[in-house]
Protein backbone atom coordinates (compact mmCIF):
# COMPACT_ATOMS: atom_id res chain seq x y z
CA UNK A 1 0.00 0.00 0.00
CA UNK A 2 1.32 3.44 -0.96
CA UNK A 3 1.08 6.70 0.97
CA UNK A 4 0.11 9.95 -0.74
CA UNK A 5 0.18 13.58 0.32
CA UNK A 6 -2.97 15.47 -0.65
CA UNK A 7 -3.05 19.05 -1.93
CA UNK A 8 -2.47 21.85 0.60
CA UNK A 9 -5.91 23.20 1.47
CA UNK A 10 -4.66 26.24 3.41
CA UNK A 11 -3.12 29.42 2.02
CA UNK A 12 0.57 29.44 2.84
CA UNK A 13 3.25 31.90 1.82
CA UNK A 14 5.51 31.15 -1.12
CA UNK A 15 8.43 30.59 1.22
CA UNK A 16 6.48 28.16 3.38
CA UNK A 17 5.28 26.20 0.35
CA UNK A 18 8.76 25.96 -1.17
CA UNK A 19 10.27 24.88 2.17
CA UNK A 20 7.43 22.45 2.75
CA UNK A 21 7.86 20.63 -0.55
CA UNK A 22 11.65 20.69 -0.21
CA UNK A 23 11.16 18.63 2.95
CA UNK A 24 8.72 16.33 1.18
CA UNK A 25 11.37 15.45 -1.41
CA UNK A 26 13.18 13.37 1.22
CA UNK A 27 10.05 12.11 3.00
CA UNK A 28 8.66 8.58 2.88
CA UNK A 29 5.70 9.59 0.71
CA UNK A 30 5.07 7.86 -2.64
CA UNK A 31 2.63 10.21 -4.36
CA UNK A 32 2.29 14.00 -4.06
CA UNK A 33 -0.74 16.04 -5.17
CA UNK A 34 0.22 19.61 -6.09
CA UNK A 35 -1.75 22.76 -6.81
CA UNK A 36 -4.44 25.09 -5.53
CA UNK A 37 -7.81 23.38 -5.00
CA UNK A 38 -9.74 25.90 -2.89
CA UNK A 39 -9.52 29.49 -4.15
CA UNK A 40 -8.39 30.86 -7.51
CA UNK A 41 -7.34 34.15 -5.90
CA UNK A 42 -4.50 32.45 -4.05
CA UNK A 43 -1.47 33.32 -6.10
CA UNK A 44 1.64 32.80 -4.00
CA UNK A 45 2.66 30.16 -6.52
CA UNK A 46 2.07 30.38 -10.26
CA UNK A 47 1.64 27.32 -12.47
CA UNK A 48 5.33 27.55 -13.42
CA UNK A 49 6.30 27.44 -9.71
CA UNK A 50 4.15 24.37 -9.18
CA UNK A 51 5.75 22.72 -12.19
CA UNK A 52 9.23 23.43 -10.79
CA UNK A 53 8.23 21.76 -7.53
CA UNK A 54 6.74 18.89 -9.52
CA UNK A 55 10.00 18.40 -11.39
CA UNK A 56 12.04 18.26 -8.20
CA UNK A 57 9.65 15.80 -6.57
CA UNK A 58 9.69 13.64 -9.66
CA UNK A 59 13.49 13.66 -9.67
CA UNK A 60 13.32 12.61 -6.02
CA UNK A 61 11.35 9.55 -7.10
CA UNK A 62 7.84 10.70 -6.19
CA UNK A 63 4.80 10.28 -8.40
CA UNK A 64 3.35 13.75 -9.01
CA UNK A 65 -0.31 14.52 -9.65
CA UNK A 66 -1.56 18.03 -10.45
CA UNK A 67 -4.70 18.84 -8.47
CA UNK A 68 -7.28 21.22 -9.86
CA UNK A 69 -9.80 23.68 -8.43
CA UNK A 70 -12.91 22.25 -6.76
CA UNK A 71 -15.45 25.01 -7.38
CA UNK A 72 -15.20 26.44 -10.88
CA UNK A 73 -17.42 29.44 -11.60
CA UNK A 74 -15.53 32.14 -13.48
CA UNK A 75 -14.32 31.93 -17.05
CA UNK A 76 -10.78 32.70 -15.89
CA UNK A 77 -10.95 29.63 -13.65
CA UNK A 78 -12.03 27.45 -16.56
CA UNK A 79 -9.20 28.78 -18.72
CA UNK A 80 -6.66 28.02 -16.03
CA UNK A 81 -8.11 24.54 -15.65
CA UNK A 82 -7.77 23.91 -19.38
CA UNK A 83 -4.11 24.99 -19.21
CA UNK A 84 -3.36 22.50 -16.44
CA UNK A 85 -5.32 19.66 -18.05
CA UNK A 86 -3.99 20.12 -21.58
CA UNK A 87 -0.41 21.03 -20.90
CA UNK A 88 0.37 18.55 -18.19
CA UNK A 89 2.88 15.75 -18.52
CA UNK A 90 1.64 14.67 -15.09
CA UNK A 91 -1.49 12.87 -14.07
CA UNK A 92 -4.32 15.29 -13.14
CA UNK A 93 -6.64 15.11 -10.13
CA UNK A 94 -10.11 16.23 -11.21
CA UNK A 95 -12.07 17.88 -8.42
CA UNK A 96 -15.00 18.90 -10.60
CA UNK A 97 -16.79 17.42 -13.61
CA UNK A 98 -15.28 20.21 -15.73
CA UNK A 99 -11.86 18.62 -15.30
CA UNK A 100 -13.29 15.13 -15.88
CA UNK A 101 -14.82 16.39 -19.12
CA UNK A 102 -11.63 18.05 -20.36
CA UNK A 103 -9.48 15.01 -19.53
CA UNK A 104 -11.87 12.49 -21.04
CA UNK A 105 -12.18 14.50 -24.27
CA UNK A 106 -8.39 14.21 -24.63
CA UNK A 107 -8.40 10.51 -23.72
CA UNK A 108 -6.03 11.24 -20.87
CA UNK A 109 -5.98 9.32 -17.60
CA UNK A 110 -7.13 11.15 -14.48
CA UNK A 111 -7.69 10.80 -10.74
CA UNK A 112 -10.91 11.80 -8.99
CA UNK A 113 -10.48 13.78 -5.77
CA UNK A 114 -12.50 13.33 -2.57
CA UNK A 115 -14.96 16.15 -3.29
CA UNK A 116 -16.42 14.69 -6.47
CA UNK A 117 -19.55 12.71 -5.69
CA UNK A 118 -18.82 9.20 -6.89
CA UNK A 119 -20.72 7.03 -4.44
CA UNK A 120 -21.07 3.67 -6.21
CA UNK A 121 -19.55 1.17 -8.63
CA UNK A 122 -21.80 1.92 -11.65
CA UNK A 123 -20.55 5.53 -11.54
CA UNK A 124 -16.94 4.37 -11.23
CA UNK A 125 -17.23 1.84 -14.02
CA UNK A 126 -18.72 4.44 -16.32
CA UNK A 127 -15.79 6.76 -15.61
CA UNK A 128 -13.30 3.93 -16.10
CA UNK A 129 -14.28 3.96 -19.77
CA UNK A 130 -13.47 7.68 -19.83
CA UNK A 131 -9.97 7.38 -18.41
CA UNK A 132 -10.43 7.13 -14.64
CA UNK A 133 -7.24 5.67 -13.19
CA UNK A 134 -7.72 6.29 -9.50
CA UNK A 135 -10.60 7.19 -7.19
CA UNK A 136 -10.21 8.97 -3.89
CA UNK A 137 -13.07 7.68 -1.76
CA UNK A 138 -15.52 10.43 -0.58
CA UNK A 139 -14.81 11.17 3.10
CA UNK A 140 -18.50 10.93 4.00
CA UNK A 141 -18.78 7.22 3.24
CA UNK A 142 -18.10 4.17 5.41
CA UNK A 143 -15.92 1.10 5.30
CA UNK A 144 -18.99 -0.97 4.40
CA UNK A 145 -19.75 1.23 1.39
CA UNK A 146 -16.12 1.03 0.30
CA UNK A 147 -15.98 -2.74 0.63
CA UNK A 148 -19.20 -3.17 -1.38
CA UNK A 149 -17.95 -0.81 -4.08
CA UNK A 150 -14.57 -2.48 -4.40
CA UNK A 151 -16.30 -5.81 -5.07
CA UNK A 152 -18.25 -4.40 -8.03
CA UNK A 153 -15.85 -1.91 -9.52
CA UNK A 154 -13.59 -2.25 -12.56
CA UNK A 155 -10.45 -3.96 -11.29
CA UNK A 156 -8.13 -1.44 -12.94
CA UNK A 157 -9.33 1.51 -10.87
CA UNK A 158 -7.00 2.22 -7.95
CA UNK A 159 -8.59 3.10 -4.63
CA UNK A 160 -7.27 5.88 -2.42
CA UNK A 161 -8.62 6.72 1.04
CA UNK A 162 -8.23 10.01 2.92
CA UNK A 163 -6.86 8.92 6.32
CA UNK A 164 -5.49 11.95 8.10
CA UNK A 165 -6.27 15.67 8.42
CA UNK A 166 -9.14 18.15 8.78
CA UNK A 167 -12.03 16.93 6.66
CA UNK A 168 -13.03 18.99 3.62
CA UNK A 169 -16.74 19.32 4.45
CA UNK A 170 -18.16 22.06 2.23
CA UNK A 171 -17.51 24.62 -0.49
CA UNK A 172 -19.38 27.87 -1.08
CA UNK A 173 -19.30 30.89 -3.37
CA UNK A 174 -19.06 32.93 -0.20
CA UNK A 175 -15.71 33.55 1.45
CA UNK A 176 -16.16 32.99 5.18
CA UNK A 177 -12.74 34.38 6.03
CA UNK A 178 -13.55 37.68 4.32
CA UNK A 179 -16.94 37.62 6.08
CA UNK A 180 -15.21 37.15 9.45
CA UNK A 181 -13.25 40.33 8.74
CA UNK A 182 -16.39 42.04 7.49
CA UNK A 183 -14.80 42.77 4.12
CA UNK A 184 -15.89 41.92 0.55
CA UNK A 185 -14.59 38.77 -1.10
CA UNK A 186 -13.43 40.90 -4.03
CA UNK A 187 -11.31 42.99 -1.64
CA UNK A 188 -10.24 40.17 0.66
CA UNK A 189 -6.61 41.33 0.99
CA UNK A 190 -5.68 37.65 1.04
CA UNK A 191 -6.62 37.39 4.71
CA UNK A 192 -6.29 33.60 4.49
CA UNK A 193 -2.50 34.11 4.51
CA UNK A 194 -2.81 35.13 8.16
CA UNK A 195 -4.49 31.84 9.04
CA UNK A 196 -2.08 29.06 8.22
CA UNK A 197 -4.39 26.42 9.68
CA UNK A 198 -7.62 28.21 8.81
CA UNK A 199 -9.90 30.20 11.08
CA UNK A 200 -11.42 28.29 13.99
CA UNK A 201 -15.17 28.41 14.51
CA UNK A 202 -16.36 27.40 17.98
CA UNK A 203 -19.81 26.86 19.40
CA UNK A 204 -21.26 29.21 22.00
CA UNK A 205 -20.03 26.67 24.55
CA UNK A 206 -16.49 27.33 23.29
CA UNK A 207 -16.17 23.90 21.73
CA UNK A 208 -14.06 23.84 18.56
CA UNK A 209 -16.44 22.93 15.73
CA UNK A 210 -15.37 23.91 12.23
CA UNK A 211 -12.50 25.56 10.37
CA UNK A 212 -13.19 28.34 7.91
CA UNK A 213 -10.66 28.33 5.10
CA UNK A 214 -11.79 30.94 2.59
CA UNK A 215 -14.69 29.43 0.62
CA UNK A 216 -14.05 26.03 2.17
CA UNK A 217 -15.41 24.72 5.49
CA UNK A 218 -13.46 21.97 7.23
CA UNK A 219 -13.83 19.92 10.38
CA UNK A 220 -12.06 21.23 13.47
CA UNK A 221 -11.38 17.62 14.48
CA UNK A 222 -8.77 15.86 12.44
CA UNK A 223 -9.67 12.59 10.74
CA UNK A 224 -7.35 9.86 11.97
CA UNK A 225 -7.72 6.33 10.58
CA UNK A 226 -4.34 4.99 11.67
CA UNK A 227 -6.07 2.07 13.40
CA UNK A 228 -7.80 1.07 10.16
CA UNK A 229 -4.76 0.71 7.91
CA UNK A 230 -4.73 -3.07 8.33
CA UNK A 231 -8.42 -3.31 7.40
CA UNK A 232 -7.83 -1.10 4.39
CA UNK A 233 -5.05 -3.34 3.16
CA UNK A 234 -7.32 -6.37 3.54
CA UNK A 235 -10.24 -4.91 1.61
CA UNK A 236 -8.07 -3.75 -1.29
CA UNK A 237 -7.19 -0.10 -0.73
CA UNK A 238 -4.15 0.82 -2.83
CA UNK A 239 -3.20 4.22 -1.42
CA UNK A 240 -3.77 6.09 1.84
CA UNK A 241 -3.81 9.89 1.77
CA UNK A 242 -2.41 12.24 4.39
CA UNK A 243 -3.52 15.88 4.20
CA UNK A 244 -0.72 18.45 4.61
CA UNK A 245 -0.31 19.96 8.10
CA UNK A 246 1.52 23.15 8.97
CA UNK A 247 3.86 21.18 11.22
CA UNK A 248 5.03 17.56 11.42
CA UNK A 249 3.76 16.43 8.01
CA UNK A 250 6.91 14.41 7.34
CA UNK A 251 6.59 12.64 10.68
CA UNK A 252 2.92 11.86 10.09
CA UNK A 253 3.71 10.47 6.64
CA UNK A 254 6.43 8.29 8.15
CA UNK A 255 4.05 6.87 10.77
CA UNK A 256 1.45 5.97 8.13
CA UNK A 257 4.12 4.58 5.79
CA UNK A 258 5.58 2.39 8.53
CA UNK A 259 2.11 1.19 9.40
CA UNK A 260 1.26 0.57 5.73
CA UNK A 261 4.36 -1.59 5.43
CA UNK A 262 3.61 -3.27 8.75
CA UNK A 263 6.92 -2.12 10.24
CA UNK A 264 5.14 -0.89 13.37
CA UNK A 265 1.94 -2.13 14.99
CA UNK A 266 -1.27 -0.20 15.29
CA UNK A 267 -0.83 0.76 18.96
CA UNK A 268 2.69 2.08 18.42
CA UNK A 269 1.55 4.11 15.41
CA UNK A 270 -1.40 5.51 17.35
CA UNK A 271 0.83 6.50 20.24
CA UNK A 272 3.37 8.14 17.94
CA UNK A 273 0.63 10.25 16.35
CA UNK A 274 -0.72 11.18 19.77
CA UNK A 275 2.71 12.43 20.83
CA UNK A 276 2.67 14.85 17.88
CA UNK A 277 -0.35 16.47 19.51
CA UNK A 278 -2.21 16.50 16.23
CA UNK A 279 -5.72 15.88 17.64
CA UNK A 280 -8.53 16.00 18.63
CA UNK A 281 -9.48 13.27 16.23
CA UNK A 282 -12.59 11.95 14.56
CA UNK A 283 -13.35 8.81 12.53
CA UNK A 284 -17.16 8.48 12.65
CA UNK A 285 -17.80 8.36 8.92
CA UNK A 286 -15.71 5.20 8.49
CA UNK A 287 -17.90 3.46 11.07
CA UNK A 288 -21.25 4.69 9.66
CA UNK A 289 -21.63 7.28 12.45
CA UNK A 290 -21.58 11.06 12.69
CA UNK A 291 -18.39 12.28 11.03
CA UNK A 292 -17.34 14.31 14.06
CA UNK A 293 -17.40 11.30 16.42
CA UNK A 294 -14.36 9.38 17.59
CA UNK A 295 -15.39 5.73 17.53
CA UNK A 296 -12.09 3.93 17.95
CA UNK A 297 -9.01 5.24 19.65
CA UNK A 298 -6.79 2.77 17.79
Amino acid sequence: MKVSLGPVYFYWSKKKLLDFYKEIESSAVDIVYLGEVVCSKRNQLMLSDWLNIAKRLKDAGKEVVLSTLTLIEADSELKRLVRVCKGSEYLVEANDFAAINIMSKQNKAFVIGPNVNIYNAPSLNMLAKKGLKRWCFPVELSRVALQDTIKEKDKNIEVEVFVFGNLPLAFSARCFTARAYNIDKDACKHKCLDHKEGLLLSTQENKPFLIMNGIQTMSANSLNLIGQVETMREIGVDIIRVSPQFTDTRKIIKIFKNRAENLIDSNTATEKLRLLNSGPYCDGYWFEKEGMKRVKSA
Binding site: T70, L71, N115, N117, V139, E140, L167, L169, A170, F171, S172, A173, R174, L210, T217, S219, G284, Y285, E288, K289, E290, G291, M292
Partner: peptide, 17 residues
Protein backbone atom coordinates in the same frame (compact mmCIF):
# COMPACT_ATOMS: atom_id res chain seq x y z
CA UNK B 1 -25.04 28.75 1.50
CA UNK B 2 -22.80 25.96 0.26
CA UNK B 3 -22.65 24.46 -3.21
CA UNK B 4 -25.46 21.92 -3.28
CA UNK B 5 -24.06 18.38 -3.37
CA UNK B 6 -20.79 19.64 -1.96
CA UNK B 7 -21.77 20.07 1.65
CA UNK B 8 -21.58 17.29 4.20
CA UNK B 9 -21.83 19.47 7.31
CA UNK B 10 -25.09 17.75 8.17
CA UNK B 11 -23.66 14.24 8.22
CA UNK B 12 -20.59 15.48 10.09
CA UNK B 13 -22.94 16.37 12.95
CA UNK B 14 -25.86 13.94 12.56
CA UNK B 15 -24.67 11.12 10.30
CA UNK B 16 -27.27 12.13 7.71
CA UNK B 17 -26.64 14.41 4.75
Amino acid sequence: VMVEGRCILSSYVTGRS
